[in-house]
């Protein structure tokens, strides 16, 4: 598999040369393969959002080199880059502006000069994936519910069929059911279209459930990078930088002190269930 993202020692400073200067990225190097489902975690101000804004050239590194989908992000061809990298920002529903949901989803396609038929087909397909009915599509984005707004805004990015989909706290402000629904959609897309997904979150539960790789950021640097079991195995080290392990992992750690032999490297409820069942069967 090819590396779709190659970052070499990138650094970025906000408000350079002013007293309010803030180093947001400090010598970050990272490679990501095509078709990965990675999560970036870190507490507020750790540089997560700055890093993802580099991926489609919204920000350009002060130093270092960043190649995404074969394109230099510091290069001129931003249009091509942004076609390939779709970013869903935090609270994406704040960017809705058209008269109808349909027109809002169409916005990016029109900017890319996609022909009429293709446009209609893609919007229909995306709307069905995100469960936006025909009647919602014809409504104003200001009169539908919060969850529907969120999905409409995400549709506006997905309809561009990006190769890399970046989601910045997509579940913020959604109820648990809405969150599950959204993540099931993303997982389904990930499997069907074989896109690369980058999820930014500080919900350890979600990250443990869906991502196959976790990148931990702290003070503008990548402090850890590995599979969920490797990362959550760190335990205390994560707590030190203001992040916790999923609650179910904590529970399993406690349980295993009473029942030696019970698996500890568990971070989803489903896995925990399986581990306990296994333990009980082995005990018999």
């Amino acid at each position: 598999m090819d590396n779709i993202i190659i970052a070499k020692n990138i650094s970025y400073t906000y408000m350079k040369g002013s007293p309010l200067e803030k180093k947001a990225l400090d010598d970050v190097s990272l490679t990501m393969k095509k078709g990965e489902f990675a999560a970036i975690i870190g507490h507020t101000g750790s540089g997560k959002s700055t890093l993802i804004q580099h991926l489609n050239g919204l920000l350009k590194p002060d130093s270092g080199e960043l190649v995404v989908a074969g394109l230099e992000t510091a290069g001129r061809d931003l249009k091509e880059l942004r076609k390939k990298v779709g970013i869903v920002f935090q609270y994406p529903e704040h960017q809705l502006f058209e008269e109808t949901v349909y027109k809002d989803i169409e916005f990016g396609l029109l900017k890319q000069n996609i022909p009429d038929e293709e446009r209609a087909r893609r919007i229909k397909e995306t709307a069905s994936i995100l469960e936006l009915s025909e009647s919602i599509l014809q409504k104003s984005p200001y009169e539908i519910s919060g969850g529907q707004k969120r999905r409409a805004a995400i549709a506006g990015v997905l309809v561009l069929e990006p190769e890399i989909l970046v989601l910045d706290e997509p579940a913020a402000g959604l109820d648990p059911a809405g969150t599950r629904e959204l993540f099931d959609i993303v997982t389904q897309l990930y499997r069907e279209k074989q896109i690369t997904v980058i999820l930014v979150s500080h919900s350890m539960e979600l990250v443990g459930d869906y991502a196959s790789r976790i990148i931990v950021m702290n003070e503008g640097r990548i402090s850890h990078d590995g599979t969920p079991s490797e990362i959550f195995g760190l335990g205390d080290e994560l707590e030190k930088i203001g992040l916790g392990t999923p609650q179910i992992s904590k529970l399993m750690a406690r349980l295993s002190s009473f029942y030696p032999g019970l698996r500890k490297d568990v971070f989803t409820v489903g896995d925990a269930q399986r581990a306990i069942m296994e333990y009980m069967r082995a005990g018999k």
């Binding site: 804004q53 489609n56 919204l58 249009k79 942004r82 076609k83 990298v85 779709g86 970013i87 920002f89 994406p92 704040h94 960017q95 916005f107 990016g108 900017k111 890319q112 506006g156 990015v157 561009l160």
Partner: peptide, 16 residues
């Protein structure tokens, strides 16, 4: 801040 955020979001969708 808000303007910056919205501009970025729309730019990410291909708006110049």
């Amino acid at each position: 801040d808000e303007t910056d955020k919205i501009m970025k979001a729309q730019a990410a969708r291909g708006a110049d």
